[in-house]
Design a protein around this nucleic acid. Structure first.
Lengths: 224, 224
DNA sequence: GATTTTCGAAACTTTCCGGTATCGTAATTT
DNA sequence: AAATTACGATACCGGAAAGTTTCGAAAATC
């Protein structure tokens, strides 16, 4: 975080003559960008605000990034890269429960505002939308899918379940409350979704147990 | 839509002396507002754009609405008031399936862009966010809940299911794909969510049949 | 020490847009 | 006919913010 990241690797060979880039300023700018998204909305996330908070100059920002959005995108990449790893204990229920609880904790914290800001900004800026997809959504989905695939192959998720849709079923409710704001994001929701998602994933499984190999998706008589 | 809505009700009594408000212009302005949200993003939804498209004057807009956002809010109210009624046939599966298919159709059409615009604008304008909640989200949820409550009382949904969470489970995946853009909104998703949501709603139901009155949320042995 | 490149600070330009004011005209009441 | 109010068109005002430029100082190479 301090002035430790000076000359690194063998970039010294391709270094020009003049004063080198201030890596510390780079870090401060990215951190300021994220902090602004965490506190206020995108509307207040101006280039001046970043510069002021980072103790840097606007000229410095525009020397290294083509525009304001690029700063936010790089900041998102650096801060969310390692977040929310899907648990893989072998216990499907516990994996899901843990993950959804962590997700709630993430969304109710500072990161929730960051995501809302990116979702909002993505509507008018395709590059921001693509960045949010590629840097946040897709990596999480890929990792989630990897774990769920193992559970499915182990028979703990019914084989006819479309995992992509199942992942939407898992995370969708939380994004809905995040952007809808009709109800708060609580651990209770995480528990409820865990129960329901697990029932959905194992339903046909428990049915195929009692008899027909044909996976009949029979429902209790609609008329009571 | 034409000049039919002139003097209506007994407002003629409280009409002043001068030229009356041009109700046709009002309709054109609201229609223009919605059309702009449907075509481009909120970013292009300027007051000038509304005026031009409506063939009206900006002065007329600001005479009847306090600001730009109020126009969009009233336009949302008028256009979405009657949309997406939850089916109530008594057949839970068919009710859900129909509703989700209609929802997909709605979101993939022009209305999807409108919603994205409102979600985005709501991040920086609390009044817009509240309007979207009160005019779209909450009415749909209330109606959905009313129908689902009857299904639950009739025993077609397990009694321990929290309907609010279940509603989030139903609609969440579609909002997620709408704002995430990682996968397209397809009827196939509606079918998949229908199957999984129904399994979730009836799972404990089929379990409580075979024995214990205690609602144990037991799962098939995690280790296969 | 000369050169080169970056730095922070701040002024600056440019563009855009929300909202207001003006003006001549149209519609309605009295 | 007079008074009143709304209309469309258009010019205008003020602020905000993206991005550029200028400037003197700092940090590196040669």
């Amino acid at each position: 975080m301090s002035t430790l990241t000076k000359e690194l690797l063998d970039e010294s060979s391709m270094r020009g003559r003049g004063r080198p880039r201030d890596e510390d300023a780079r870090a401060r700018i990215l951190q300021a960008a994220i902090q602004i998204l965490e506190s206020t909305c995108f509307i207040n996330a101006t280039a001046d605000a970043i510069a002021e908070r980072a103790g840097a100059s606007k000229a410095t920002i525009y020397r290294w990034w083509p525009n304001k959005e690029a700063v936010f995108i790089e900041a998102l990449r650096e801060t969310t890269a390692q977040e929310l790893p899907f648990p893989d204990t072998g216990d499907l229920r516990e994996d899901i429960r843990q993950q959804l609880h962590n997700f709630v904790k993430l969304l109710t914290g500072r990161r929730g505002r960051t995501f809302k800001a990116f979702i909002a900004a993505g509507q008018s800026d395709p590059e921001v939308a693509e960045a949010f997809r590629n840097l946040w959504i897709k990596p999480r989905r890929a990792q989630t899918r990897a774990v769920l695939e193992r559970h499915q192959q182990a028979g703990r998720i019914a084989p006819e379940i479309d995992l992509e849709c199942f992942i939407d079923l898992l995370y969708g409710p939380f994004y809905l409350r995040l952007v809808g704001g009709h109800r708060p994001l609580t651990p209770a929701l995480a528990d409820a979704i865990t129960d329901m998602a697990l029932a959905a994933a194992t339903h046909s499984l428990s049915e195929s147990v009692d008899g027909s190999g044909e996976t009949i998706r029979s429902v209790p008589d609609p008329a009571l």
